[in-house]
Design a protein around this nucleic acid. Structure first.
Lengths: 346, 346
DNA sequence: CATCATTATTAACACGTGTTAATAAGTACC
DNA sequence: GGTACTTATTAACACGTGTTAATAATGATG
């Protein structure tokens, strides 16, 4: 309690130099060269006293918070069931630690988006932010575009030219559905990962439609459902699909999490995967290879997305303005046990 | 870019009062009463200008960072596969937002614990911190105890009287194993969630041993394995168990995540759950009810743990020092399809 | 030796707020 | 109308650092 805070002044006194010199040594400011023996003295004094610069004062003086924000745009209850969050966080922490930055996490209450975006930045708690899972209908995005605030979207919003890092959702979904078609399936159901305001849901639906179209298959709206990111919604949407008895032999579920729920629904109805219904997921969450049958899915490079987003954000904070505004990462189809050629049994 | 920052001075000028008055109005300082019409004037001016107080300056002046830290003590690769992180984060964000605090996330590199703990606080980036999944062998804990830094452990470390919030690991594990015993199982394998330096692993092992003892069953070390938090490790540990052909009819796996791997290993060997082997997990991750067979497990109130930890931390930051240092939350056995009475078939 | 160029160091101000101690204005009382 | 007291407001300092512009010390050059 009585621990006296040690300031740069204390270090300066002990080393017998001025506070400014200490600052130059600590920050290795290249514009001013300091005699090696002075550097030595200062570093020794800092070590002896256990000097740790006060980050707050530093932020105030340098007008740099040395922190970036991860801002989520979902209800907290979805945050709690987001299977990617750990990977994203892991990737961000990696980069952030290496760059000596801090990571602040926040979520925006629906409808208060702009308020939160702008106050986070303007209050200078952070230098820039990464927006996770942006929505089409977020009015805050347009407002952000007009400022010059460093922002990176994880996931893209069409018609919005903020910097973004995303996977090729359309192509990936098309690949997934093509795979089912190549196995002979003709009636293929589709459950999207989330509601349509989320751009990833929309794009994956597009990929589904494109694959059907190029194969000359009709698009049947009654085979399409929108889930809500979690397994529970996947379960009920699949039940709703099965209740209609539409005779589909395969399903593309645009989220592994949702797919697990869908899988449970199928098994509960007494049908088997892949014998009766082939299932393709999306995301390749760590667990996908450990369920039975192991889930065929699209690999989502979550960690890379996080890392690239962070690197991009750091460039923006440094003042760079790269030409390319949308960075798109490749995905990969992982074939496992949940898909099988139509009509072939074990 | 040219957007001029608006300071409290600007507000003061517009309202025709001093900066101090603005500060009193904004902070609703009760020690100084201000005439209602002045308050009105100031608030109006702030609204017109869109004034947002600079959090950094505020933190510096008030010597309160208005932020708490979530510090993880695992390798980043474990962070990435921690199924609880989303729930924890969701719970923390809930509380933190309500208290107008910010949440900073960080992880400590093994071996550098104390360095990071202390610099985070002393640099005043945060006012206090929550340590996730502490280890027995963390020398930083002892060092922390000697300072008066507000810290809450999520998960407890015996012999360390830092404030902590945890579940009753021993009792919960005992309940889980008792359940298996009550179903007639006598040879029960055990796979711990993580390596023994993690206290939760140790405690769950104790619970396992106690249940055996009170039922008069012998403790067989060859039936015990330590996993490494993820499904992959669960898979290999279960394979290793099965390779020995020790004839166990049930297994207690102290983590659902690990249990999923173990389940896959069992099924891959051609055995069935629960027909051949009954399985009890631990954690009740959201997915546990959606796999087949649905996992019998111990419900871990992750969200509550996070919330309670945060509340406790806030009290510590406020200067309180509650008598009770260890808060223990109850768990609950959730019986699902993965356990069955010995010898009874479907 | 005087002059200039270069290097090393520092005094002084800036960053935007919280807070104390002092002042000014207003009110009640005899 | 002066005094004591309350209320409203502010000037001035504190927080701990980054950074510029000026100064002092050193070395090189004619």
């Amino acid at each position: 309690m009585a621990e006296k805070r040690i300031t740069s002044q204390d270090v300066a006194n002990l080393a017998g130099v001025s506070r400014t010199t200490v600052s130059f040594v600590v920050n290795k400011n290249p514009r001013f060269s300091i005699r090696p023996e002075t550097v030595q003295k200062v570093q020794e004094a800092a070590r002896v006293l256990g000097y740790i610069p006060n980050a707050t004062a530093r932020a105030l003086a340098s007008r740099r918070a040395k922190a970036v924000g991860l801002v989520m745009t979902r209800d907290p209850r979805y945050i709690a069931s987001d299977p990617f969050l750990p990977q994203i966080l892991g990737g961000l922490l990696d980069v952030v630690k290496q760059a000596q930055l801090n990571l602040l996490t926040d979520w925006v209450e629906p409808g208060q988006q702009y308020q939160t975006y702008s106050s986070l930045i303007r209050a200078k708690h952070i230098d820039g932010m990464i927006l996770m899972t942006p929505r089409y209908d977020d009015p805050g995005l347009k407002a952000l575009r007009e400022t010059d605030i460093p922002v990176v979207l994880m996931g893209m919003v069409p018609g919005c030219d903020l910097y973004s890092v995303d996977v090729e959702n359309v192509a990936a979904a098309r690949t997934a559905v093509r795979h089912l078609i190549s196995l002979g399936h003709q009636r293929i159901a589709c459950i999207l990962n989330g509601p349509s305001p989320y751009s990833s849901a929309c794009q994956r639906l597009q990929g589904y439609q494109q694959a059907l179209e190029e194969a000359g298959l009709a698009y049947d709206e009654t085979l399409v459902r929108f889930a809500d990111f979690d397994a529970t919604s996947g379960y009920s949407q699949m039940r709703s699909l099965l209740a209609g008895r539409p005779g589909f032999t395969a399903a593309f579920v645009a989220s592994d999490n949702v797919a697990l729920g869908a899988l449970a629904a199928i098994l509960d109805t007494g049908l088997k995967v892949p014998d009766d219904i082939s299932l393709v997921g999306f995301d390749d969450i760590p667990m996908s290879s450990y369920i039975h049958p192991a889930l065929t899915t699209i690999h989502m490079p979550a960690r890379e997305i996080a890392q690239q987003s962070c690197h991009l954000l750091m460039r923006l904070i440094a003042g760079e303005r790269p030409e390319e505004r949308a960075l798109t990462l490749p995905t990969e189809l992982i074939t496992r046990g949940s898909t099988r050629e139509l009509g072939r049994s074990k």
